[in-house]
């Protein structure tokens, strides 16, 4: 009952979500292998160093730089053989490929697993996370993606053996043109690890700059409540909540936001929530891990001035 992890590389680095996938796989199987599709054989070393991996299976071919999903999914399907599980961390990379592998194997994949209940029963979110479903699959082979926030990230104290597979590259009707990497001045709201969010308490557009300043200091994205957007402090792309963006960063710092349920709907799954508000009864505080009851301007000035 072995498991295969489809590894996602960022350059030569193993992505965080692949590390989560390893942890998930180790809950299901004693024998976890990793599969790497790459144009660069030297990438094997970072994968072999991952904790919890038995064998790294490398498919190396020049055409695999920016490979097409058609080619990649066929290669993976061919490697699957006796593996019971094919697991990858949830990302646009895995969500592009894994369902196609599923179709080739006649398997119904399971997306965004957050919890493993048994070897065929998993918990996954529906309705933008408002509902959690426990699902049981009857497929022989199980293909799934796992949420990287829901599992520990496996470390780097492993020493897996590396096996290189020879594979024939199939023809593809699609080709890579270019990649425009996002320039990370400030991280994008929905994918950011940290968000500093401001509400109506800021009082003006000028004051809202204090939020942006703190965000830059923390390498965080900027968010806002609807009241702040309505008041014109910031444009509506930054609105978090029921009618805005749904986010689940590691850190959500809510400044001058009362915590209306429509706002909570967009950020309640954040790992750590910090509230800065002068009203001890603000509903936001009930959701918080840390509460700083203070005038927000004092707090922002102190935070912006603080030498980390």
């Amino acid at each position: 009952m072995s498991a295969l992890i489809l590894i996602e590389l960022n350059g030569s680095e193993v992505s965080a979500n692949s590390r989560a996938a390893i942890t998930a796989a180790s809950q299901l199987s004693d024998s976890v292998d990793a599969l790497v599709l790459t144009n660069d054989a030297s990438n094997s070393s970072s994968v072999a160093a991952l904790s919890g991996i038995n064998t790294v299976k490398m498919i190396v071919d020049d055409s695999l730089e920016n490979s097409s999903v058609e080619v990649a999914s066929k290669l993976i399907a061919d490697v699957m053989g006796d593996y019971k599980y094919l697991i990858s961390g949830s990302s646009t990379f895995s969500k592009n490929i894994l369902p196609r592998v599923g179709a080739l194997l006649d398997v119904q994949p399971i997306s965004d697993v957050c919890e493993i209940k048994s070897n065929n029963t998993f918990v996954r979110p529906l309705y933008a996370g408002n509902v959690m479903a426990t699902v049981e699959t009857s497929d022989e082979t199980i293909v799934m993606t796992v949420r990287s926030t829901a599992f520990e990230h496996s470390g780097d104290d492993g020493s897996a053996s590396v096996e290189s597979l020879s594979a024939s590259m199939s023809e593809s009707n699609s080709s890579f043109v270019s990649l425009q990497e996002s320039e990370s001045e400030r991280p994008e709201l929905t994918t950011a690890d940290r968000i500093v969010s401001g509400g109506r308490g800021l009082g003006s557009k000028e004051n809202f700059a204090l939020i942006e300043q703190l965000a830059d200091k923390l390498d965080a994205a900027v968010g806002a409540s609807r009241a702040a957007v309505d008041a014109g402090f910031i444009s509506n792309d930054y609105q978090v909540g029921q009618t805005g963006k749904v986010v689940a960063p590691k850190l959500y710092l809510a400044v001058g936001i009362s915590g209306a349920i429509q706002h909570l709907a967009g950020m309640k799954d954040s790992q750590v929530i910090v509230v800065i508000n002068n009203d001890p009864d603000a509903p936001m505080s009930r959701m918080a891990d840390l509460v700083w009851q203070v005038d927000l301007f004092d707090a922002l000035n102190e935070l912006n001035a603080y030498q980390v």
Binding site: I110, G129, T137, I261, V275, Q293, Y306
Partner: peptide, 28 residues
């Protein structure tokens, strides 16, 4: 069906045990 939904649950908003802090230093 390949997948059976065993059960579903509203995730809701759960209160957290919050800790009071009072300075930037403490926060960091």
């Amino acid at each position: 069906p390949r997948i059976k939904i065993v059960s579903v649950e509203e995730s809701g908003t759960k209160d957290r045990a919050s800790k009071q802090i009072s300075s930037a230093e403490e926060l960091f």
